[in-house]
Design a binder for these strands. Structure first.
Lengths: 240, 240
DNA sequence: TCGTCAATTATGTCTATACATTATGGACGA
DNA sequence: TCGTCCATAATGTATAGACATAATTGACGA
């Protein structure tokens, strides 16, 4: 292994943490000790520790030393699925069917509720995502036309609005809310489900800087869809 | 802003990438250029670029330069709620009620399915989380007793198994699966819901290194619960 | 006894320098 | 024309030292 030294130091300590040799809360040797142990300069040790701290594995405190961090339950990585990609990967055909497309004038309660520009027009889009002609999800979306004027000209005959936005509009901030709801009459009809069937409800708002770009509410057919979140080195991803 | 310089450089470039000023595939200035631009040493610039590369935002190639990476996985941070904490913060009283507790012998299909130690005993625990005596969620948990032998002696009369594990067992890796399901008879009875009511279903597996620690399946009352995931500087957290 | 302050210690940042590595592109020769 | 090889330009790794910052500890004084 011709790894750079700081990588070697990093991976050795990481292994100790992952295998439980070093337990959360315990103190690591000081940079000075490690520097003597590995026979290198302090900068090299520091680089290794910085990487570990960046990855959240250790916590460094001045004067006190470096400590193995307790993993925080409160944050895991959630993979936001690209519906089209997932459907195609399952070997099915993807299709988005536009069912409604309206311009919402400025100043309506809708716009205010969505947290989008109150003084500009909004584009409202509704449609259904199909996998091999079976509905998988439906969505209702509001897009700020002052933020994304090009959106008005898009057909969305085939490409979904979400995919188009992802490709063409850079964003800096997003918030997603996930819940379980019973399908109301409208949703049930769109998804060809009995009313009251459980749906995974996802609401997402997206911003660029302080400017609201879009808000979307999606209902996924409960029996066909799940989200996955992970914490830690996702070596296990391939197992499933 | 008294940020360290390398942090300032990093965040400025990051902002340029996120806002689309620098587009995927485009080349960054060389370290030498940046070092002149910021009036600092090359090491400082390099530290900033290393951090960006570590975060997957740029790709560095020798002789060629550094390039903005094309975003690959689209992921956000998911806040996994601490049930007890949230309930108490709402001003309600939290209680966990144990309804079943069994030792599962080694080698059963259950153990294999859960991905826990196949050659050790498992502890099976079932119970309900209450907020002011209203059921909010029920859970069925399997714990590997070879990984956590102390678990067998815990009463869980008041503290939930999850909270106990979190306090006493270090873990390195976890995977959470989120779906929407209809309450079956058992779940409906525990949660005092009509059968078929929508529930947020959360399944989590936890490991330390390669050793499986626990698997839990939780059903949350759909009308009372939602999860939140975020991407970006969460300045907006307080708005909601 | 209790608080205050300063010395100490460990990490945090930064510089200037050196040499290693590696892909590119151009010079040169067959 | 084509391939080989080398100079070059960029990043990658590492060092030694300087000073900054912050928290702990203990000494000292009220």
């Amino acid at each position: 292994m011709s790894l750079p030294l700081h990588e070697k130091i990093r991976s050795e300590i990481e292994a100790d943490i992952l295998t439980g040799v070093r337990t959360p809360g315990s103190r690591l040797p000081t940079e000075h000790d490690l520097m003597q142990h590995y026979g290198c300069s302090r900068m090299t040790v520091s680089k290794a520790l910085s990487a570990l701290a960046g990855g959240g594995l250790i916590e460094r405190r001045k004067r006190a030393g470096s400590f193995v961090a307790r993993p925080k339950v409160h944050s895991m990585m959630l993979d936001i699925p690209d519906l089209e990609l997932e459907i195609v990967q399952r070997g099915q055909r993807y299709r988005f069917e536009l069912s409604e497309r309206t311009i919402v004038p400025p100043g309506t309660p809708q716009a205010r509720e969505a947290g989008l520009a109150e003084d500009g027009e909004l584009l409202m889009i509704e449609g259904v995502h199909f996998a091999d002609d079976v509905p998988l999800a439906c969505e209702a979306r509001l897009v700020s036309l002052s933020a994304v004027p090009e959106m008005a000209a898009q057909p969305f005959s085939d490409d979904s609005p979400g995919a188009w936005l992802l490709k063409h509009v850079p964003w800096t901030e997003a918030e997603t809310r996930i819940a379980s709801v019973a399908a109301n009459a409208g949703v049930a009809a769109q998804l060809q489900l009995p009313a009251g069937a459980p749906c995974l409800f996802v609401e997402r708002r997206t911003w660029r800087g302080d400017e609201g770009i879009t808000q979307v509410r999606q209902h996924f057919v409960g029996s066909a869809y799940s989200l996955v979140a992970r914490f830690g080195p996702a070596k296990r991803a391939a197992d499933f």
